[in-house]
Amino acid sequence: MTSLPKEPPKKKLGLVIDLDICVGCHACAVNCKEWNSGGHSAPMTDTDPYGADPTGVWFNRIHSFEVENEETGGRTVNFPKSCLHCDDAPCVTVCPTGASYKREEDGIVLVNADHCIGCKLCSWACPYGAREYDEDAGVMKKCTLCVDKIYNPNLPEESRVPACVSTCPVGARSFGDLGDPDSDVSRLVASRGGYDLMPEQECRPTNKYLPPRPKKQGGEGQTAPELMPVSDSSAGVIARWVDRFLSA
């Protein structure tokens, strides 16, 4: 039913995204589109694909931000975003038809395209902009956490991973059970201070972001000792070498 599972799912599958190493290459976004083009929510319709106003269905998009700080200088942060598979998913509770639901087995939030009336309300309810309306099909679509890939016995083991995760060239994306504190992903989150986006929206997202690490920048934390010239003048440096290396 459209209400959230009575018991929050124990298993919470989700993604962990490492902002420290994401280079903003869009690989995850495009590979996601590719997988899903023939997947559970196929097609990932594109309108005006070769024209003036190309737009289409994407489950994952890459933003990049400049973070300015007078003291420490600025930094650029690349920021991929897809559905966060929230525990308290408002996109599920607002859905009038029950098409939007959260799976009890693993916490994945999905849309049942056969029941969706395309009212778009869930897209209004999601604070993160993670829902994708397919105008052509008249239904809402969204990141499926590659539910048709991760359990799929038709694929070899190493492919049973969300498309965006296995494709990420820098390895900025991890996938696993965030409900299990002992899982690899949970440990990663714990060790790196993984955080929620917009906690104030109280959606309790499953996906976590790992913050950029402090920069080894400027003089801060510098361990390298200053270089000490061996002589005041260049001639002196060479003279020193002549002295040192020539026995005669």
Binding site: S64, F65, E66, V67, E68, N69, E70, G74, V77
Partner: peptide, 8 residues
């Protein structure tokens, strides 16, 4: 880290 502004 500072104030956040969209770059792209």
């Amino acid at each position: 880290f500072g104030s956040v502004k969209l770059f792209e």
